[in-house]
Design a protein around this nucleic acid. Structure first.
Lengths: 335, 335
DNA sequence: TTGTAAGCGTTATCAA
DNA sequence: TTGATAACGCTTACAA
């Protein structure tokens, strides 16, 4: 109950004023005389004092909280980014986690609570959608947050006017398409994810573009959730068709894994490629052809921008994906 | 800078006192007259007011923050639990995430900051170790936290005197050993993880116990990190030996995946079993024999206890694992 | 039902 | 260098 040790208690025990105690425990360095300094430190130690960072935030008008907003922390794409961001934030800040469960209005809510709480920064890994109304509202909320002195960093599309880490989804998917055609694949399907999700859309567009450069086009494009189950379902649906392509591009690794499960269940032979190169999935067999994004770097870079002093103008860091050809698309018999 | 909308501003605009504004925006229901109520709500809406939960916490002497402490949010074991816990906490609380990177002293630090901040609850998924000094200190810190009015829930070993979700690691590993022997396996190795980690130790002990019931014992036990790379290294080391067992138990799935990668690289044929049944890995091929823990339930149960009113006495919920035999241990040629 | 005012644990201004 | 004391944004007796 009343067991919270307060700075006032520390001050009393050290025989100094509250102000002095505050200075030594938190404030600037040289201001307090060595004698008092030691006494305060000793008292704090004896009492087991830990600063109440909420009270500090109220008094200072700013906090060291960084809000991380992700659609789903269980998805390895986000948990890898989150872990890397944590490592950067941890030493000097605290991380508040928000998951939107892919509901857009939650993003708005988080940004405004973070603002009310004068959080130091907010990092949004939520993927942008085609919903312009929402995007505009979110951009406004972010602008307000920044106007209030906070830092905002977005990983994904560059639509929110904030500092951004921008994976080059189109280019990566295009390169993948080229590589697959050059590997000898001739007919293609796309498991395109949700039609409203820009990340998915960019990858689809890039892939189609790449195919076009080689004079080809996908024979089928199916939409589904951006999840393992989405990939499984879409692939099952694809396999129910009369003719099936020899090679299927799933717009992310998690979907690709689901798709491969469906393929395996049916005992058919279809090449599958993904996107992201999720570390946890690097050991699956057959190993997955994919486009590697430097997820850890992305998390680190976003967090670094969040912890930096705000620059003069906003930064957009582009990160490119690297095509990794592995066994899941190796042609064996169709040669 | 000063763009933070304050309750005082809302009150002024609505032409009511701060107290009244506070009552309608946050406080109890029926206390405020309908007229004033509406005016306050309108003012809050117009100004875009969002409560500063930190200030609320300071004023109330308690907050709705729940601290979640995990060794590594990238590890799917923890991210699955975290996601499930989030879903329970989210509606009425906020989640603060702490990762210890498997450094024990971090756990202590988190518990005391959570205490200083009068967090509503703390959930620790950190695994217990054989370090009794640390365990005692942590138990003390938790006791203080609870004495201060907070709720503490632990997922893992029942050593900290808090409400606990306790996976029956020994029993699960024992059942696994029995099942493997009954499947026809004859010689066994164990990738035992860190020797100081109780979870790993319990699983090793249970497995050995199970083997003993069938009159067998492991021919080799190797320690390593509790990670994918740990599994890879330990298995590589094992494969360097003159004789290798026909079946290897890795004390968690992530290690098992690393071990399978090592096996595959060498082109040898060794059965591998894991523990946890990580959802993300259910689709790997060959599918992994393992002991399924209901990770999502565990996260949900822990979070529910954290959000509950404290019960009269502490609760320990035991959850049992279920052996799932899959392809990774299927005997084909050795029959 | 409403308002006044005294807190909550800190920080920060301003004298001393 | 130190210490009163007024903030910070909010809640909550206690009065009115």
């Amino acid at each position: 109950m009343g067991s919270q040790v307060t700075l006032a208690q520390v001050a009393e025990r050290a025989g100094v004023s509250l102000a002095t105690a505050s200075r030594v425990v938190n404030g600037s360095e040289r201001v307090v005389g060595a004698r008092f300094r030691e006494r305060v430190l000793a008292a704090a130690e004896e009492l087991g004092y830990t600063a109440n960072t909420f009270a500090q935030a109220v008094a200072r008008g700013r906090s060291d909280v960084v809000g991380l907003v992700v659609p789903d922390i269980q998805d390895p794409y986000f948990s890898v980014i989150a872990a890397a961001a944590m490592a950067v934030v941890e030493p000097s800040g605290e991380m508040m986690l928000g998951t939107t469960l892919r509901r857009q209005e939650q993003e708005l809510r988080y940004v405004s609570t973070m603002r009310a709480r004068q959080a130091r920064a907010v990092i949004m890994v939520g993927s942008r959608t085609t919903d312009n109304t929402h995007t505009r509202q979110l951009a406004e909320a972010i602008a307000e947050f920044v106007a209030g002195g906070g830092r905002a960093v977005v990983i994904g599309q560059d639509k929110l006017g904030a500092d951004t880490v921008l994976p080059l989804n189109r280019a990566g998917a295009k390169d993948l398409a080229l590589a697959l055609v050059d590997q000898g694949h001739r007919s293609f399907g796309i498991l395109a994810g949700p039609s409203t999700l820009l990340t998915a859309k960019d990858r689809v567009d890039g892939f189609i573009d790449g195919l076009a450069r080689r004079g080809r086009r996908p024979s089928v494009i199916l939409h589904s959730d951006f999840t393992r189950d989405g990939g499984y379902q879409a692939m099952s649906q694809l396999l129910d068709r009369r003719t099936t392509p020899g090679c299927v591009f799933a717009v992310n690794d998690v979907m690709a894994i689901g798709a491969m499960a469906a393929v395996r269940e049916r005992g058919v032979k279809i090449a599958v490629a993904g996107f992201d190169d999720i570390p946890t999935l690097r050991d699956v067999a057959p190993s997955l052809t994919t486009v590697r994004l430097p997820l850890e770097d992305m998390g680190r870079m976003a967090a670094s921008m969040a912890m930096d002093e705000p620059g003069e103008r906003r930064r957009v860091i582009r990160v490119k994906g690297e095509v990794i050809l592995r066994d899941s698309t190796t042609l064996v018999r169709n040669a």
